[in-house]
Every structure is written in structure tokens, then in C-alpha cells.
Amino acid sequence: MIEFLSNYYLYALVFVVLGIGIYMVIASENLVKKLIGVNLFQTAIFLFFVAMAYVEGGSAPIVPAEKNPGELLVASPLPQVIVLTAIVVGIALTAVGLALIIRIYAEYGTLREDTLREVRADE
């Protein structure tokens, strides 16, 4: 087990952060904590993509003029591009989520999910 964790520590970190994010989304009653859990879950997915794209001994995908492209061991830039795009989308979704949370608090005066369900049932 120790050898596995020493070789694949990034994947272990991914699953720990993923588990914490899922737990926060499921167990928390506060909407802000749920949004933080979603962001943690999202961060774990980003880390997983970057860890999968790692190439042992690889270099940046820039081919020098004197080298044959078939001789170089390079990392694919596609996962990094996908993660950068996902980070931008995640920031936008977080901003929209926070705006909705502010609006919900202004309307109902609480951020607890169970209290919001009771208030909505009374209307």
C-alpha cells in the first residue's frame, strides 16, 4: 500500500479532495458550503486531468528545428487547454451561484436548505 501511494500520490489526492467535495455537497445544509463543495469537486477533476496528462521524461510540445518530431517525447497540450477552459467556466458558474445565493438570502433571510423548503411549502 505504501509503494502504491508513493507512486500514485496524485491520484490519492484527487480521490481525497473529490470525496471531501461530494461530502460537503451532500451533508451540508448551508448553500454557501454546498457551493464550496462543488468547487472542491471541480478542483479534483482538474487535478485528475493534469495528472493524467503527465508524461515521465516528456517536454513541452515545441519541436526544435534540428530535431525529428518522431524522436521527441512530448506531453499533449490538450488536457491543459481543457482544464484552462473548465477553470474559466467554473469561475463563471461560481459567480452565478453566489449571485443566486445572495438573492435567496435577501428574499428569505436564510441559507439553510431545510428552512428554505419549509418557507417555500408555506407559500
Rank of each mutant, 00 (worst) to 15 (best):
F15Y: 12
F15N: 08
V16P: 05
V16E: 02
V16F: 13
V17H: 00
V17L: 14
V17I: 15
L18G: 12
L18D: 11
L18F: 14
L18H: 09
G19P: 10
G19L: 13
I20P: 03
I20V: 14
G21N: 05
I22T: 15
I22V: 15
I22K: 08
I22S: 14
V25W: 00
V25K: 10
V25P: 02
A27L: 00
S28C: 15
S28R: 13
E29H: 13
E29F: 07
N30A: 09
N30R: 04
N30E: 11
N30D: 15
N30Y: 05
L31T: 01
L31N: 06
V32N: 11
V32H: 09
V32P: 01
V32C: 07
K33A: 12
K34T: 08
K34E: 04
L35K: 09
L35G: 06
I36Q: 09
G37V: 03
V38F: 11
V38A: 13
N39P: 00
F41A: 08
F41E: 10
F41M: 12
T43R: 00
T43D: 01
T43S: 07
T43V: 07
A44V: 00
I45S: 08
I45A: 12
I45Q: 07
F46I: 09
F46S: 10
F46D: 02
F46M: 15
F46Y: 15
L47P: 01
F48E: 09
F49D: 05
A51Q: 00
A51R: 01
M52L: 14
M52V: 10
M52I: 12
Y54T: 03
Y54W: 14
Y54D: 01
Y54E: 02
Y54H: 13
Y54S: 04
Y54R: 08
V55W: 08
V55N: 08
E56I: 10
G57I: 04
G57N: 04
G57M: 03
G58F: 04
S59C: 10
S59I: 13
A60H: 00
A60G: 00
P61H: 02
P61V: 01
P61I: 01
I62R: 07
I62M: 09
I62L: 14
I62Q: 06
V63R: 06
V63C: 05
P64N: 06
E66A: 12
K67N: 14
N68C: 03
N68F: 08
N68P: 03
P69E: 05
P69G: 05
P69C: 04
P69H: 06
G70E: 12
G70H: 11
G70T: 11
E71M: 03
E71F: 01
L72C: 04
L72M: 11
L73N: 12
L73T: 15
L73K: 15
V74D: 05
V74A: 08
V74E: 10
A75R: 12
S76P: 02
P77I: 10
P77D: 07
P77Y: 10
L78G: 02
L78D: 13
L78F: 11
